Computed example of a mutant assay.
Amino acid sequence: MSFDSLRDKVTTLLAHPSTTAEQKMTAVCELLQTSMDHYDWVGFYFANHEAQTLHLKAYAGEETDHTVIPFGKGICGQVAVSNANFVVPDVKAQDNYIACSITVKAEIVVPLFKNGKNIGQIDIDSNTPDPFTSEDERFLEWVNEEVAKIL
Rank of each mutant, 00 (worst) to 15 (best):
D95T: 11
V110H: 05
S101H: 07
L112V: 08
W41S: 10
D123R: 04
E62S: 06
Y39F: 13
D130S: 14
A58S: 09
I75Y: 09
H16F: 05
S82A: 14
K24C: 00
T64H: 09
N48C: 06
R138V: 15
Q121M: 14
F132A: 12
D136M: 02
S82W: 12
T34W: 12
I98K: 06
V68A: 13
K73L: 11
V104Q: 07
E137Y: 07
P70T: 03
L151K: 04
V143P: 04
E22C: 00
A99W: 08
T67E: 15
F113G: 04
N118G: 00
T128D: 05
V109A: 00
A84F: 03
D125W: 06
D130C: 11
I69F: 08
L32R: 13
N144C: 12
D123W: 05
G72M: 02
D130E: 14
S126T: 04
N85F: 13
L140T: 02
K92G: 15
I124D: 02
N127C: 05
Q33C: 15
K114Q: 12
Q78R: 13
Y45P: 03
G43Y: 12
K24F: 05
G77D: 00
L13Y: 11
K114R: 14
N96P: 13
S134L: 12
G72K: 06
L6W: 10
W142G: 11
